[in-house]
C-alpha cells in the first residue's frame, strides 16, 4: 500500500504544525478529504480500491481526532518531538498541583450534602472549566517557545490537563446522579 505514513497529521491537512490551530479550517479540510476518500465514494469500485479507501478514511479520521481537541493535540505535538506523555518516569508532578487536586476532589465528594447541590456543582464545574482554559493558554505559550525546557513544561502541563479532564468527567457523573 502506498499510504504516505511519513506525512504528519498537520501536513495531511495542509496546516502549519503548532498548538494554535484554526479549528474551522481543520474541520473544513477534514470534510473535503473525507468527501474524496470515504468508502461511500467507492461502493462500485474494485475490492482493492475499497480497501485503500477504508484505510485512508481511517487515517484521516484518526488525524482529525488527534488535532481537533487541545489535549490530544498537545500529546501529538509532544510525540512529534519524541515525548510520550504516558511515560511518567521522567516527569514529577508538581506537588502544589497534586495537593490542589486532592482538595478539589474532597470538595466534589462533599457537594451532595450542600443545601443546593446542583448550584454548588455548577459553580464547581465553572471553576474546573476556568482552570482548564488557563492550562490550555499556558500550553500555547510553551509550544510557541518550542525550546527543550518549554517542551518539558508542556509535558507537565499536559499531564495536569489530563487530571482536570478526569475531574470534569467526575463532575458530569455527579451531575447525572443528581438528575
Amino acid at each position: 500500500m502506498q499510504i504516505d505514513s511519513t506525512r504528519n497529521y498537520f501536513e495531511l491537512f495542509g496546516l502549519p504544525a503548532g498548538f494554535e490551530i484554526d479549528v474551522q479550517a481543520l474541520t473544513e479540510r477534514y470534510r473535503d478529504l473525507q468527501r474524496s476518500v470515504h468508502p461511500d465514494r467507492f461502493t462500485n469500485a474494485t475490492d482493492r480500491e475499497r480497501r485503500l479507501s477504508m484505510q485512508q478514511a481511517s487515517l484521516i479520521n484518526e488525524a482529525y481526532q488527534s488535532l481537533k481537541e487541545p489535549l490530544k493535540r498537545a500529546r501529538y505535538l509532544l510525540s512529534l518531538n519524541g515525548v510520550d506523555i504516558n511515560d511518567e518516569s521522567n516527569t514529577i508532578m508538581d506537588t502544589t498541583f497534586l495537593m490542589q487536586q486532592m482538595e478539589l476532589r474532597e470538595t466534589l465528594e462533599e457537594i451532595g450534602s450542600q443545601p443546593d447541590p446542583m448550584v454548588a456543582l455548577e459553580d464547581f464545574a465553572a471553576e474546573v472549566g476556568s482552570m482548564i482554559r488557563d492550562l490550555i493558554s499556558q500550553l500555547s505559550t510553551c509550544f510557541d517557545d518550542n525550546s527543550e525546557s518549554a517542551l518539558n513544561k508542556a509535558h507537565g502541563l499536559s499531564l495536569q490537563l489530563q487530571f482536570l479532564y478526569r475531574l470534569r468527567e467526575e463532575v458530569e457523573e455527579h451531575e447525572e446522579a443528581l438528575l
Partner: peptide
C-alpha cells in the same frame, strides 16, 4: 489504485491555499 487515491487527496486539498 494507490495513485488515484493520492491524487484525490491532493485534489481535495488543492482548493485551499497551502500554508
Amino acid at each position: 489504485a494507490a495513485r488515484r487515491m493520492d491524487a484525490s487527496i491532493n485534489k481535495a486539498l488543492s482548493g485551499h491555499t497551502l500554508d
